[in-house]
Write a protein that binds this DNA or RNA. Structure first.
Lengths: 179, 179
DNA sequence: GGTTAGATATATCGGCTCGATATATCGGGG
DNA sequence: CCCCGATATATCGAGCCGATATATCTAACC
């Protein structure tokens, strides 16, 4: 998933590690704080796999930065990862996908959103079941915590519903030009 | 943190690994799904540290279960971990603390809640700042994602506020008998 | 009586992530 | 000129996740 995020950012422009971390923090920071201990190994991994390549601008420039560019193979990997409509159960994964939704066509977008919705619906049902089952055994604090989680999840569903509705309204227009 | 959760559950009664996992899933499952790959090593660690001990009921009973009991040292560790008022920034950590709030006295409870509130307030400010700073650069989906995160965090603050208010209202009563 | 399925129960592996830490350079203000 | 904060890369240990393997117990079914 970090791989997907890195590739997605590099699709726009070449970047170096520090820049990638800042960029990730700027948009996804609230859901997922990337550490150097995972970022640098991930970049290395991508390089070894041939998904990104290190570029050396102007040989005469003093260079402390490792600037990377996405390769054709990297583009492919990114597209595949994005289309693959899992990522429903992992909040961070779903967030990353949304952040790169512009690279998906409307149908695929709706598919991802519907999966997310299904996952959240299941979760709501499960929490309700737990509340019913364990109501007697759990203390007031735990109850409040679970109830709050239930509220949040319900609101998440409403939010996803709005996204789906808008997607469908927009999709009723001209034919898609994206992937 | 898993250590705290395990100790907290063992405070109530002796349990074996499978049971601990089920119990954790029942209440905290929505925030944090514990895996065996972390649970069993954690139990082992606690045993080595002397925080829990394995008990062998009736020698003649066929026993496939490794039943554990919390020790005096384990009780100490748990209490210390619970009082230590960090755990503001980690959702799962905060959830675990709440689930064992009954073992804290009202003052300590309010302290933990206030810290959580401060963290969430910072987070809201940060998200607002990011939205203002990057509004032009990010696409509609990312914007919606961040905005939704902002809403959720704001609601979390309101929820924590209600807990604090209730805690103070209740605390105005008789002297605390808990730790 | 046999067998089959699902719940109970423990354990481990590889890969990934986190948090902390080390190191060094750059740019600007005092 | 020196120092500080931002920039930049890198690595380590510890812990966690998901998957997987293995075995047994229980209850249902014919």
């Amino acid at each position: 998933m970090l791989e997907m995020a890195v590739l997605g950012l590099l699709k726009d422009r070449t970047m170096h590690g520090y820049e990638l971390k800042k960029e990730l923090g700027a948009t996804l920071g609230q859901f997922w704080q990337v550490s150097y201990g995972s970022l640098y190994p991930t970049i290395r991994r991508l390089e070894v796999e041939g998904a990104v390549e290190r570029i050396f601008p102007k040989a005469d420039v003093v260079r402390r930065k490792n600037i990377y560019r996405i390769t054709a193979k990297g583009e492919e990997m990114f597209t595949e990862a994005l289309r693959e409509p899992s990522a429903a159960s992992d909040d961070a994964r779903f967030g990353v996908k949304l952040a790169f939704f512009r690279y998906l066509n409307p149908d695929a977008r709706v598919e991802v959103l519907e999966r997310r919705r299904a996952y959240l619906t299941d979760k709501v049902a499960e929490i309700r079941g737990q509340l019913r089952t364990y109501k007697e055994r759990i203390d007031a604090y735990t109850y409040r915590l679970m109830e709050h989680g239930l509220d949040n999840t319900s609101r998440d569903i409403e939010w996803v519903d709005r996204l789906i509705a808008e997607e469908k309204a927009a999709g009723a227009g001209p034919a898609p030009t994206t992937l």
